[in-house]
Amino acid sequence: MNFEIINPGTTKELLAAVKKFQKENFRFGAGCTDFLMELKKNPSEGLTVINLSQVKDAQFNGLKKSVKGLRMGAMLTAHKIVMNEEIKNKYPVLHNAAESLASTQIRQVATVGGNMCTASPSGDIACALASLQADCELLSTTGKIRNVNINSFFAGLRKTVLKKNEILYGISIPANIKSTKNIFSNFIKVGTRRSMECSVVSLAYHIQTDSNGIIIKAGAAIGASAPTIRFAATACDFLIGKKFKNITQKEKEEFAEKVLSYASPITDIRATAGYRKEVLFNISKSIFE
C-alpha cells in the first residue's frame, strides 16, 4: 500500500485540491474503512488521496435540523446518526440502518458520504436514504452546488453521477408530512450473522399515516438486489390512500410483487439470485404484520 496524501483543512483548500488533481489518479478518503481494505488488496500506482478528515467545515461534518427536514454533511459519521435523537424518533429507518452497519469501531469513522459514494448495492445507510428520498448536494470546484435526487445519484455498480470536479457535500432528507400521526419505518437487513455483515438482501421503508391510519406518504428502497440501490416507486404509489392496518393478504402480495419488479439480483458467494428474490418478496409482505 503506497500513496501520497493531501490534507486540506478548509473547504476552499479541498476544492483547490480537487481542481488540481481532477485529471490525475486521485481518490477521496473519508472514513477510509472500505477504502483502506481496497488499497491493501489492490494497491494503485501513483495514487493521491485527498483526505477529507481534516476539513473543518460544519456544513461538511455536521447535522442541521430545519423546517424543511434534516441536512447531514457528507462527513457525518454513522455513530453520530445512531446517537441522534431526532433521527431515532422521526426517521427510524435511518437510525436502524446506521446501527446495523459493521461494528461500533467502524461506525465511529465510517461516514454517510462514504457509504453513498462507494455506491455499493448493499450500502445500508444509502438504502435508508433512498427510502427517505434524500437529496444530494454535489459541490463543484467552481463553488456551485448541483442538487441531485438520490434516485439519480447511483449510475451503476459502484458508480455515481459525480463528475471529476465534484464532491458530495451534503444530504438532505425531507421532513415528515405535518399531518402525519404515525410512522412505520424500519430497515430490514438479511444476512448470515447479526454483526459485521454485508446485506444479502435489505429493505428500507418509511411509511407515514394520518390520524385515520391512512397512508399519506410511502418510501421503500431495496438493497443488494440490483446493480444499485433502487427506490420502488410503483410499490410506494400503490400504498397511498390505503389504511395501513387493514391491508389485505392480496394487497400485501401485490405490494411485494411491485417491490420485486425492481430487483434483478445476481448469484454470488453470499446467496443465489432465487434466494434473494424469495427473501425480498417475504420481507416486503412482512412489513404490514
Binding site: 496524501i5 490534507n7 478518503g29 477510509c32 474503512t33 483502506l36 481494505m37 483526505n51 478528515s53 481534516q54 455513530h79 461500533t104 469501531q105 467502524i106 465511529q108 469513522v109
Partner: peptide, 18 residues
C-alpha cells in the same frame, strides 16, 4: 482497538496522519 478522543476505533483501518 484504541480510543481516539475517547471513542473506540480499529487502529488497523485508521490512517496515522489523521
Amino acid at each position: 482497538t484504541v480510543l481516539i478522543n475517547g471513542a473506540p476505533v480499529n487502529s488497523c483501518l485508521f490512517l496515522a496522519v489523521n
